[in-house]
Design a protein around this nucleic acid. Structure first.
Lengths: 216, 216
DNA sequence: GTGTCAAGTTTACACTGTCAAGTTTACATC
DNA sequence: GATGTAAACTTGACAGTGTAAACTTGACAC
């Protein structure tokens, strides 16, 4: 099926990847509104209708780009988690840092991922795309789930907190105060100072209890 | 300036309000993608260019609708806060419920509010529009801010948590499990069971510490 | 009446997604 | 090699979109 490593005459050879790459570039340059089938086509050097043919419409293109975004998103979390000490608490703190780093470094792609509103046909595929990223969260939260409790509760808490924080930081009122940190009970200190503009993640976790969460 | 209570010949009389109302109806019926200048115009019975003339482009229309959305959003929080016991803890719990109720009852409007990406010209106006809603949060969080601490830290925590939770519930993976509750340390139990589909907000806060947050 | 100005209209244009039809290429089969 | 077929595009057309400029209508001050 993949007998076209390079463009051979009429066939492009690697159009799908080229279109996704073009789409990510468009997102990076001009935000969500800058992404269109025709611009992707022009950038990939194909006719204006080629992307729609490939991805079955603009929603398909956006989903394909979002799938690539989820893969990079997941990788950002894993990159942070695999660095430094490997205690469960360190790993949980660091996937949150990786989460926020991705949101900060790829705002438009992050926007696309979490602004995706698909019809029922694509929503299942979208869930498949995002599942590996959620799995990182699940694996990392697992050590903190008390016996007999539903893991999804603490997962939801961590996910909600970091997701809301990322959105508020990247677009909302907090964007004016990027150095703002979050501190509350110990389960929240994992998010402290994650968006240091200089890229040096200050450690502001001093004085916290050693457990993540006094789950009752 | 408002000498046109009804439509008098050429002038519409109350075009601005009619367009905003039409826009909200379009959002409610078909989501974000269903909102356009021309559809608003048709629904308000004016020419297709009238909305752009009024609001100086589609971004202006969207901002005007978002301003109305923020007002309703704020009112939803206040309605919940002013009901029931009036301890600081009750009020904080209830503005979160009001927050989530609004997100659930007005998903497209909530989407519009928090997906708004404005150029630098409109972003200041947008901040003015959202300020009263944020003020509700600030006032409600104030009793929980320890002396000498920056109030914005606990505000950010609560806002992030409820914002992320609302988004995940309304659009994301959690949408499949609307009855999911969040429980963790006491500061988080305010969000427990906020999205009961039957509309009866179950109280699942039993066994929590009486203080909101062991802020250290 | 006259001037002025805001409020809408009209017209036109570029851009967008989508669809139908046609063209080119690859490949299997004879 | 010739042929059929399916996939991978291209081409052309169309409706819907935002936007800008020019025009018209109405209200009001003088």
């Amino acid at each position: 099926m993949s007998q076209h490593p390079d463009k051979t005459g009429h066939h492009h050879g690697n159009l799908r990847a080229a279109l996704i790459e073009a789409g990510i570039a468009l997102l990076t340059e001009g935000g969500l509104d800058n992404l269109s089938l025709r611009k992707c086509a022009a950038r990939a050097g194909v006719s204006h209708a080629a992307p729609a043919h490939h991805f079955d419409g603009v929603d398909g293109l956006r989903m394909a780009i979002a799938a690539e975004g989820f893969a990079r998103f997941r990788q950002s979390m894993l990159d942070f988690a695999d660095t430094g000490p490997q205690t469960p608490r360190d790993r949980l703190r660091n996937i949150c840092r990786g989460y926020l780093a991705f949101a900060r470094n790829n705002p438009a792609l992050y926007d696309l991922i979490f602004s995706f509103r698909a019809n029922s046909k694509l929503i299942d595929q979208m869930r498949l795309n995002s599942a590996p990223a959620y799995q990182v969260l699940r694996d990392t939260c697992a050590p903190f789930v008390p016996a007999g409790k539903d893991p999804v509760e603490i997962e939801t808490q961590v996910w909600s907190l970091v997701h809301g924080y990322a959105l508020l930081n990247c677009q909302g009122d907090l964007a004016a105060h990027p150095r703002r940190t979050m501190r509350c009970c110990p389960c929240l200190t994992i998010l402290a100072a994650p968006l240091d503009p200089a890229g040096k993640l200050r450690d502001a976790f001093g004085g916290c209890a050693p457990h993540i969460c006094t789950y009752q």
